[in-house]
Design a protein around this nucleic acid. Structure first.
Length: 274
DNA sequence: ATTGAATGGGGAA
DNA sequence: TCCCCCTTCAATC
């Protein structure tokens, strides 16, 4: 679930459901009991997202910081809320509904200075209007780290995860192992612009679709195929299957502890886009 | 009943 | 580079 587009949707949902009104907070599981007690009854001022981090500001400048990690989930529902099921770390409820948080990587309260520190260590987020891609380019253009790893480094770019990085590199024809400093400025711009388009579409639809109209199963007379994550993609989790564009076998490798997928035909070694 | 995998990330070594 | 955190669900015994 949680790449940056999901977290932006969750922020919008919090704003819509709770914004400007007091909320009730509890920790049915008990592990966030003290934090929930501190939030209980406060007015939710603003919910925001930076990359995969959800930042919910309450009156008196207390900010709830949630990072879902790889397992975490947020589930919304209508009030009256049913008895909590499973390990609910935090339940917020208000007139407009309730939100249950399970399995987050982070669920904590931050002071304003800590929020600033968190934001300062994150790179530009393609989904934020205040994002400056040059900030990322300054790091990328100096780095020997493979571009596929740089795109997963939240200090370089905040928001893309394993699916978007694989898909954007495929769409731009970039070899995942190319070191950052091997990229031209033009290719970085193309990668960034494509992330902006793909992720904004992800916020609208709530899924990750990256296949261009001319390569859809309908356009190419193939059986439709949707990945388990709920979108239509070129290479993510398609190892061993034929590339939708050139027919070469999609490859997989582990890079920095994460599964990387690419097409050796469309993204040959040292290819720099086009 | 148990294991493994999953769209993350921090910290130690 | 590994290990650990946290939770759910599907696959396997």
């Amino acid at each position: 679930m949680p790449e940056g587009h999901t977290v932006h949707r969750l922020a919008a949902e919090h704003q819509r459901m709770f914004g400007g009104r007091p909320v009730a907070a509890e920790s049915p599981q008990g592990r966030f009991a003290a934090g929930a007690a501190r939030l209980d009854g406060r007015v939710l001022v603003e919910a925001d997202a930076h990359g995969k981090h959800l930042l919910v500001r309450f009156d008196d400048d207390v900010t709830l910081h949630v990072h879902l990690g790889i397992y975490g989930k947020l589930a919304f529902g209508a009030v009256p809320a049913p008895a909590p099921v499973g390990a609910v770390r935090l339940r917020l409820s208000g007139r407009g509904g309730f939100a249950d948080l399970r399995g987050p990587n982070a669920c904590e309260l931050l002071e304003p200075g800590e929020v600033k520190r968190l934001r300062d260590r994150l790179g530009p987020d393609p989904l934020r209007g205040d994002a400056d891609p040059d900030e990322a380019w300054r790091r990328i253009s100096r780095s020997r780290v493979p571009v596929a790893a740089l795109l997963m480094d939240q200090a370089v770019v905040a928001g893309p995860g394993n699916i978007y990085r694989a898909e954007v590199l495929f769409r731009q024809g970039v070899d995942p192992m190319l070191p950052g400093r091997g990229l031209s400025r033009a290719v970085w711009s193309a990668l960034w612009d494509d992330l902006v388009v793909l992720m904004a579409e992800g916020v609208r639809s709530g899924r990750i679709d990256t296949v261009r109209a001319e390569h859809t199963p309908e356009a190419m007379g193939r059986a439709p195929r949707v990945d388990d994550h709920g979108g239509e993609v070129y290479v993510y989790r398609r190892a061993g299957a034929p590339c939708l564009v050139c027919g070469a076998e999609v490859r997989a490798a582990v890079l920095a502890g994460r599964n990387l997928f690419w097409c050796p035909g469309c993204q040959p070694s040292a290819s720099v886009g086009g």
